[in-house]
Simulated assay, not measured.
Amino acid sequence: MLREALFRGPPQDDTRSSKFRVLSGLLAQAGIEVDGPEPWDMRIHSPDLPARLLAQGSLGLGESYMDGEWDADQLDEFFARLLRARLGERVQPARIVMHALSAHIFNRQTRRRAWQVGERHYDLGNDFYAAMLDPRMTYTCAYWKNADDLASAQEAKLDLVCRKLKLEPGMRLLDIGCGWGSLIGYAAEHYGVECVGVTVSREQVEWARARYARLPVEFRLQDYREVDEAFDRVASIGMFEHVGRKNFRTFMQVARRCLHPDGLLLLHTIGKNTQRGATDPWIDRYIFPNGDLPAVGQIGRAVDDLFVVEDLHNFGADYDRTLMAWHANFEAAWPQLADRLGERFRRMWRYYLLSCAGAFRARDIQLWQWVLSPAGVPGGYRRIN
Rank of each mutant, 00 (worst) to 15 (best):
Q12L: 11
E77F: 14
D73G: 12
F240W: 02
E229D: 15
N247A: 05
Y139R: 04
D305L: 09
C141T: 10
Q275I: 13
D280L: 05
D67V: 02
G197E: 08
R108Q: 12
F79H: 12
L215S: 11
I176L: 13
K164E: 00
C162P: 01
A338D: 01
Y129S: 02
V303F: 06
P169D: 04
I299R: 05
L337A: 00
Y286H: 15
L75E: 09
G271D: 03
A156Y: 09
Q222F: 08
V234S: 01
S236D: 02
A85V: 12
A151H: 07
V205C: 06
G31L: 11
T110N: 06
E89W: 14
R214T: 12
G25F: 12
G197H: 01
D159Q: 12
V22M: 11
F315G: 01
G376A: 10
G316H: 03
D280V: 05
F78C: 04
E189Y: 09
G25L: 12
N314L: 03
R84Y: 12
G300P: 03
F106H: 13
D339E: 15
W326L: 04
G244P: 00
F330D: 00
R214Y: 08
G244R: 00
E168R: 14
Q275R: 15
Y319L: 10
L183N: 00
L61Q: 10
G181T: 00
L82W: 14
F307V: 10
L267V: 06
